[in-house]
């Protein structure tokens, strides 16, 4: 879809939506939001960009192929659960610590894992569908 309006606005919207998605992810612990919701917004951003500028352009904006992001997300989620084991606590026990006055905990890291997994899985499906849709046309 190479309309000028969509191509121009999608650039702004892409950045805005990504910012919003990260905002939602990080504030999730105290306000409405979280990894799952943040990931959905990010998928929307990429889907929009792909519609306006084509798949390969959208792919270039990804740090890793989507399926790798799935693996990375699952790994992060798993590792965040293992931290508690070091304190002789059961798997997935939350551990909290302060970094530069900011309160961080393994549940937040776990949420980042959720974010990456959901984002990667959905985006991979959307990209794959778009790719084969292009072939049919």
């Amino acid at each position: 879809m190479n309309t000028l309006i969509l191509q121009t606005t999608s650039r702004f919207l892409f950045t805005l939506l990504l910012l919003l998605s990260i905002f939602l992810l990080l504030r999730g612990h105290n306000e409405p939001g979280g990894g799952f919701i943040g990931a959905l917004v990010a998928v929307g951003a990429y889907a929009l960009y792909a519609l306006a500028h084509g798949l390969s352009a959208a792919r270039q904006l990804l740090p890793l192929p989507p399926l790798r992001l799935v693996g990375l997300g699952l790994l992060i989620a798993l590792l965040s659960g293992l931290v508690g084991l070091l304190n002789q606590q059961p798997f997935m026990t939350g551990v909290w610590f302060k970094v530069l006055g900011l309160k961080l905990g393994t549940p937040v890291i776990f949420d980042i894992g959720v974010y990456l997994t959901v984002f990667g899985a959905l985006l991979s499906a959307i990209f794959a569908l778009e790719e084969s849709a292009k072939e049919v046309r």
Binding site: G28, H29, N30, E31, P32, G33, G34, G35, F36, G94, W96, K103, G105, P107, V108, F110, D111, V114
Partner: peptide, 11 residues
């Protein structure tokens, strides 16, 4: 350590 109960339950 979270005010969003839904999110704390989830993660």
């Amino acid at each position: 350590f979270g005010q969003n109960i839904v999110n704390v339950i989830l993660v």
